[in-house]
Each structure stands twice: as C-alpha cells, then as structure tokens.
Write a protein that binds this DNA or RNA. Structure first.
Lengths: 159, 159
DNA sequence: ATAATTAGTTAGCCTCTCTAATAATTAGAA
DNA sequence: TTCTAATTATTAGAGAGGCTAACTAATTAT
C-alpha cells in the first residue's frame, strides 16, 4: 500500500526540521565553540577525509560549489581551516584543518553529542535501537545527492 | 550502556541535515509553489490551527518571536497569509491563510510528499515501518522546545 | 495607579543557499 | 598540436533564515 510511504514522507517533513532546530540549539549551547551546523559538517568531513577538494566536500554536503566556497571562506577567516594548492592539479584545492579547527570540531562534536544524548535519555534502549536502524535505512537514501547538472543531463539523455 | 545513546546522537547529527537538504530540494522541484521549508511549516500550522497567534506559531516552530515575525512578513508580502487583529486582546495577532496561501500549501505538500515517497520506494515496507516508529519516538522529544526565557528561569529558580 | 508581563515589531548582524558570470587549468579531439 | 571541452574554484548579487537587543503597545497584578 502506498499509504505507508506517504505517511513516512509526512513524518519526515514534520520531524526532520524539529530535530535540526534542536541540534542547532545544542551547537550554540556548547559555547566556546561557536560554529554552525554546515561549518561543523564541513570540518568533520575534512577531518575524516584529509586533503579533500572543494568539490568532494560539496558533493558530500549536497550543496553547490559557490555555497561551499563561501562557507569555507568563513572558516578560513576564523583560521579553522586553510586552502592549500595542489601541486599535481593546479586548479584543485586541498582543504586542511588547522590545529584550532581540529580541536574546535572535537569539542563541538562531544558537546553536541552529549546534549543530544541527554534528550535521547528519555527513550528506552529498544526505542533507541529502532532509531538507530531507521537512520541506517535513511542515510544511504539521502546521501550523495548526485548533483546532476543541466549539462550532464543533456549529455546523458540527448547526446 | 551509554554507547547506543552516543551512537544515535551521532547518527542524528549525520543524517538529519542530509534529509533536510533533500526535502529542501524536493520543495524547490515542485515549481509553481516556490516556498521554503519554514514558510511551508508555518502555513501548514496555520492551516491546521486556525486563528493562531505569532507566539503559538513560534513555539511550534521552536523559533524566536522576531524570527517568526520576519518570516510572516515575507508571507504577507506574497499575500499568502494575513495578520488580523484580535478584538479580545488587542496586542494579539490572528494569522489567517489566504485562498492563495491555502492552495499553495496544499500543492506544495502533495508535491513534496510524492517526491519524498519516490525516494522511500527504495525501502521495503518493513523498513518503512521502522522509520515510522522512529519518527514517532523522536517527534515528542524534539517538539516544543519549551523556550525558557532568562526571566522565566530566574523566576522559577531564584524566586 | 503604578509596576510587571505579555505580544509583536524594528534594527542590526551574520550565515546559508542559490543562480549567473568569470578565470584558470587540464583533458580530449581534429 | 592546436583548439575546443570539461573541471575546479571564485566572485557578485540576491533572498531567506536565524539570533540578540531594544522598543511600543496592551493587559494583568499589586
């Protein structure tokens, strides 16, 4: 039945924004490390995937290149990351966390995690298990937004 | 064990933004009804809770009053909702959807729902069931951010 | 009556995200 | 090889989305 599909879609549209808002607040609460969610996500990705390029990051975040470029601008201004020129391919960037950046992303992560965990304490471990599973079903579906450009599209379908 | 808590927290921080990004794109894709997620959420709430005030809406969204005030500004400019003065309490607003607003929120809802459902088709109905349950566990935890003001806090704890 | 609370708005700030246009470098084809 | 394509990133410009702080107006409580 298509009913469950629609219901789930509705639930997602309803719940995801609320969770985001909560996370946003948790991130702010962890004062001392005052960064936004996209900033945190960017740094976490760079930390986990050293020497990534802007494009890599953009694809991971599901954002456009200009958006990410500006996002990185902010982080560079705060000296949390640096842009390094790649020697092999001179148009390519290599993003590197500074020491400050690394420690901030660490503390932000644990702080947000603790605050969130605090909220999740209201649930039983069975319920948490369900959530854990759900996230693992959802992540692959919504990850890697594929970023099909108009040009790619034409190339694939017309040409 | 506290491990599961932390893992779930981590999964949430990881997955929620991606879902949001996908929803954002789905909303845009439903061209003709070009509204943002907060705008959609506001209108949907007003549709379901007629004659709500700004404060009601702000609490539901988990946002500050000024944020919501500005948000509503935009919708009023587009003639999707109107601010009506309440006769009983003259500082209170009553938010009302215009006809245009009502039809836009309807079409945006079905469009986004269909696009999302499309993505969810990749899952089995068992997996959907898990997601459904998870959302129902999560929603109450993250809904109604309680919005404790400094003043309230002092009043409750000190006085 | 006067003080405190509540409902909204305004102003100012910064981030997020997009599209469109541009520059520089590399890869591919004629 | 030369000239065209594609890739990588940036800039400019615009509109939302958030927040805090400071303010007005109306209501309630003392």
């Amino acid at each position: 039945m298509a009913k469950l599909l629609d219901t789930c879609a509705h639930e997602l549209m309803d719940t995801a924004p609320q969770i985001m808002q909560a996370i946003r607040m948790e991130m702010r609460r962890g004062r001392g490390s005052d960064i936004s969610i996209p900033q945190f996500r960017s740094m976490a990705f760079i930390q986990g995937n050293p020497d990534s390029s802007l494009s890599n990051l953009a694809e991971h975040l599901g954002l456009t290149l200009p958006s990410v470029s500006k996002l990185i601008d902010g982080l560079v201004k705060q000296k949390l990351i640096t842009r390094k020129e790649s020697t092999a391919d001179r148009r390519r960037l290599t993003l590197v966390l500074t020491q400050a950046g690394s420690s901030i992303v660490d503390s932000a992560r644990t702080s947000a995690r603790e605050n969130l965990a605090q909220k999740l304490k209201l649930l039983s471990s069975d319920e948490l298990e369900v959530i854990y599973q759900a996230m693992n079903f959802l992540r692959p579906i919504f990850a890697g937004q594929s970023k099909v450009t108009a040009h790619d599209f034409l190339r694939r379908t017309v040409l």
